[in-house]
């Protein structure tokens, strides 16, 4: 029993951090905002180059064949650096799902392309089909009930809708699902798809929350009022401490959820709900502290803070809010007929 990153995992995280630190600066993100979401340039291919999209693609399809824990580490960095592309949907959800179902032609068509950074696959878990990067994706995985479909771009019409964070690039889809798009009609496959989305979005959100905390620490250490840096005021120190504690809690739960996704399939479903709920809470608390502690400057368009505030807000509600998940977990625990969750 050991719950810690291996040297290789820590090194991989450093490589993602290093690359994004150079390629995905706040100025780059702002340029993407100004171009209405377009123009993150060759970042997608660079991510593929260091093995992010191919992390859980099996080796026989050219992938890394690595673990979901490594992928979760990368996703946390992706949130931290504000990467605007649908990495969690493609690298975690689509790669894991396609590696386990669909026929050989589907796998041959998509897995090598995902690995190479040549395919973007997005996700729709429910109606309405409001999908991130919907109009840009090469395909969209669609869950309806127990069915999982893979919808190539030419089988749907995507109408872009404007959102407060243009890098989300949401689009509303119109399409018909039929036997030709069906990957699997199997509740287990569909549930695993949802579990993947929750686990992966928790990881990204932990990164966003950590970035909000770090930006705020930087600010309170430089801003002076009453003759001292505002970071010396205990009311502010305690708010940041509370946010930091929630981030670490969510991070530990996310590591476990990613581990469980690969190794403890029966536990993965609940681990994902718990991780996403904790990440949403960490995101909300970090957001509240960050804006408040920045004062007026944080309320401007010009300051970078809102880029992460808005990303965080979107992710808090995507793939289930904290309330949704807590009610589901609590209901299950209170159900006398259901087997115990853990403990």
């Amino acid at each position: 029993m050991l719950f810690d990153l291996s040297d290789d995992q820590a090194e991989f995280r450093e490589s993602v951090r290093g690359m994004l630190g150079r390629q995905m600066t706040p100025a780059t993100l702002r340029a993407v905002w100004d171009a209405d979401g377009a123009g993150s340039g060759d970042l997608w291919r660079r991510l593929a180059g260091i093995g992010v999209q191919g992390m859980v693609v099996p080796e026989e399809y050219g992938g890394v064949g690595g673990s979901h824990v490594e992928l979760a580490l990368a996703l946390e960095e992706i949130g931290y650096h504000g990467v605007p592309d649908p990495v969690l949907e493609t690298a975690f959800v689509a790669a894991s799902t396609l590696a386990q179902c669909g026929d050989q032609t589907v796998r041959d068509r998509w897995l090598p392309a995902i690995n190479a950074g040549e395919a973007v696959v997005s996700l729709s878990l429910d109606k309405p089909a409001l999908v991130v990067h919907g109009a840009q994706a090469d395909a969209v995985l669609v869950r309806r009930g127990t069915q999982t479909h893979l919808l190539p771009a030419d089988r749907a019409v995507w109408r872009p809708v404007a959102t407060q964070d243009p890098t989300r690039r949401l689009a509303l889809g119109e399409f018909q699902l039929d036997d030709s798009t069906l990957l699997a009609d199997d509740a287990a496959v569909a549930d695993r798809l949802t579990t993947a989305a929750r686990t992966a979005s928790a990881a990204v959100l932990v990164g966003v929350a950590r970035r909000l905390v770090d930006m705020t620490i930087g600010y309170v250490l430089s801003r002076e009022q009453f003759g001292q840096v505002i970071g010396s005021f205990q009311a502010l120190k305690h708010r940041l401490a509370d946010a930091a504690v929630l981030v670490e809690a969510a991070r530990s739960l996310t590591w476990y959820a990613a581990y469980a996704f690969g190794h403890e399939p029966a536990a993965a479903r609940w681990a994902a709900r718990v991780a996403k709920s904790a990440a949403s809470d960490a995101g909300a608390t970090a957001s509240a502290a960050a804006l408040q502690l920045h004062g007026g400057i944080g309320f401007t368009w010009e300051h970078d803070l809102h880029l992460w505030l808005k990303r965080g807000q979107a992710l808090q509600h995507a793939y289930g809010s904290a309330t949704d998940h807590r009610v589901a977990v609590g209901a299950r625990i209170l159900d006398r007929d259901a087997p115990a969750l853990a403990g």
Partner: peptide, 22 residues
Amino acid sequence: RVQEEIGWLYEHIEAYRYMTLR
């Protein structure tokens, strides 16, 4: 409301478990 609170408690105990294990 009861379900949500039980869910909150379960989540926080699990978080404590994995923070401690780390």
